[in-house]
């Protein structure tokens, strides 16, 4: 079951959309997965009956070279989508925290739940998905990023989030510290992302022998911990 919304329908604040509310109700009552796919100029919301899914799945365009895992600090997870642009979200029923309030848009519903998923659970997976960039004017993806920023601004006040060139500055800040954050979450989150990025770059500079040794180290450790932690 899926619903398609135009750019304006998706971002428009206003009255309830019965079809969406029905889908949302079904997702929570059947413990299904509610999915959002952002296209070039529209948004598709669908329901899938995937059993035993507990991880939220975030599709990112221009997926950064760095790889986050379940133990990456939440502060870094919250900032991560701003480095890659969100193109899809799969939310298992257990990860739906915010419901759609009366006069807020559907985009707001997804942005809030994205924030909740990244800040409150470690159970998040990332995948690379089509970036949806097409045509003139702001795309659905870019507009959604803005909405996500609004949620951040609301939850974690920091005057830097009001800067017009914020996304550009974030990309630079990812490599060199250029933003003086007021909020400790952003400070810690970006520091963690920079550290991960530096380590990833180190890996890329490694020789083939070093890469093989590192792989052996990690595989040996993973095999052992899989037994110890099971």
């Amino acid at each position: 079951m899926s619903l398609k919304f135009s750019h304006s329908q998706f971002f428009e604040a206003g009255p309830h959309c019965d079809a969406f509310d029905t889908l949302l109700f079904q997702a929570t009552s059947r413990k299904s997965v509610l999915s959002l796919t952002l296209g070039a100029s529209d948004a598709e919301i669908s329901l899938s009956e995937a059993a035993n899914v507990s991880a939220a799945r975030i599709g990112l365009a221009e997926l950064s070279q760095i790889v986050l895992d379940q133990r990456t600090p939440n502060a870094a997870q919250v900032l991560y989508p701003l480095l890659g642009r969100v193109t899809s979200i799969d939310l298992p029923a257990g990860s739906i925290f915010a419901l759609r309030s009366h006069n807020r848009s559907m985009a707001d519903f997804w942005a809030r739940n994205l924030f909740h998923a990244l800040s409150s659970t470690h159970n998040v997976e990332y995948v690379q998905k089509f970036d949806g960039r097409a045509g003139d004017g702001p795309t659905t993806v870019e507009e959604f990023t803005k909405r996500y920023l609004w949620v951040l601004r609301d939850a974690l006040p920091d005057s830097n989030l009001k800067r017009a060139d914020l996304l550009e500055q974030l990309m630079i800040d990812f490599h060199f510290p250029v933003i003086a954050y007021e909020n400790e979450v952003f400070k810690g989150g970006m520091k963690a992302l920079r550290r991960i990025n530096a380590a990833t770059l180190d890996d890329q500079r490694m020789s083939a022998e070093d890469v093989a040794a590192s792989k052996r180290f990690n595989n040996t450790r993973s095999n052992l911990l899989a037994l110890l932690v099971e």
């Binding site: 133990r71 600090p73 991960i196 932690v229």
Partner: peptide, 13 residues
Amino acid sequence: KQSATLSAEQVRT
């Protein structure tokens, strides 16, 4: 066992 709480990046570092 206790090292399972470390991130891949922390282990690598």
